[in-house]
Design a protein around this nucleic acid. Structure first.
Lengths: 203, 203
DNA sequence: GTTTGGTTTAACCAAATGGTTAACAAAGGT
DNA sequence: ACCTTTGTTAACCATTTGGTTAAACCAAAC
């Protein structure tokens, strides 16, 4: 059997599909463009992935799988809330600065088809917020933190980290920054966001 | 001239286009669907708006025009930073809770075509952050606020308000809330977000 | 060296898409 | 009454879209 090229091709298709889907979204992506990007015939896409929908789901799952472990870091780690916040904001912002299309893509496509999240929840490794909520409640009771619900704190952390990435074109316009200036602004946030949050919640 | 229906029709088209474009985005929207939604013939869309692109731009401008005044409230009002934050977070979150598709739509389409923001910047009424920056610097110097750059504070305010709306499907999944539970969570944020921010920055 | 079975290609297809056209209807102005 | 302008419709059009097919290709098994 001819196996020389095949493992390669399937991977090449996935890489090309990631590129195109994450840049243009499901609706804006064209199978022909993915084929061109992969340097192969359009029929090959269907040979390996049957349909646009299935190829898209492969890409989406892959993208989601890259984000999930990051979240588990803050949700299920054993350090204190303050330590978690300092580590997570820094690491996570560094990560999405290098993959800005990941959160854009996931959030956009989840808005397009909210039912999609149902599939995700069944998958193993889907982040659970339970432990984090208990920990926050405990530290509030101990007087370490000002009263706050774990959900709200979690949302705030994500918001402060992710929003500047997904809304970058709009924010760039507001603050009149070029790409370099904006990168520098984000660079500052790697430490400033943690200070901001901790000031907000520390008793 | 036949005017009986016309003023009506053009508006009906715009309303239908808003609905469809804001729900599905430029790429996902179909001219036929907009025509159906408006209860008219597809040719009428082109009669009044020439092309999909121009109809889309009409919708986008309209959407942006609804958001801009809200931002000018926090950027150019004359009250103190603390007062601004309390008023803005409450009013703005109330507003986007009633129009959740507005920020989703604007951010999604700005990511699809970042050059689009250039057109917006030239329009009158495009929010400027200058006054806000000066005010923040002044209050920091007076010792009212902890040191923070105006841009960063502005980003944080927007992030805490807007992110929970645009990422709602994802967050709903994380915190395992149904629609009602999520609405309640957002309802709390109308006052909690202001407290959070003010705790973070007040000296 | 021929068979074998996965791989790759070019040509093809039906459906959908944005857009156009030509005819028609309604309304005013003269 | 007649003509012009504006609004509306149904039929049509070229192109693009995701998807299919049948034949060619090619490395290995026999």
């Amino acid at each position: 059997m001819a196996k020389t090229k095949n493992e390669n091709t399937e991977q090449q298709i996935l890489e090309a599909a990631k590129k195109v889907f994450q840049l243009k979204g499901m609706d804006g992506a064209r199978m022909q463009e993915i084929a061109d990007e992969a340097g192969i015939n359009k029929a090959m896409l269907h040979y390996y992935y049957r349909s646009k929908q299935l190829l898209f789901e492969a890409v989406f799952s892959h993208a989601f799988a890259m984000m999930a472990p990051q979240l588990n870091q803050i949700l299920n780690d054993d350090s204190s809330i303050e330590e978690k916040i300092r580590h997570f904001t820094h690491d996570h912002l560094s990560f999405i600065m290098e993959h800005p299309y990941l959160p854009k893509f996931i959030i956009q496509e989840l808005n397009r088809n909210p039912d999609f999240v149902t599939n995700m929840k069944t998958k193993t490794g889907f982040p659970s917020i339970e432990k984090f909520k208990i920990q926050v409640a405990a530290e509030v009771k101990q007087g370490i933190l000002k009263p706050i619900a774990g959900e709200q704190l979690f949302i705030n952390i994500l918001a402060l980290n992710i929003f500047p990435i997904i809304a970058s074109p709009m924010i760039k316009a507001f603050i009149r920054a070029d790409d370099e200036g904006y990168t520098q602004l984000l660079e500052s946030r790697k430490t400033e966001v943690a200070n901001f949050i901790i000031n907000a919640i520390k008793a």
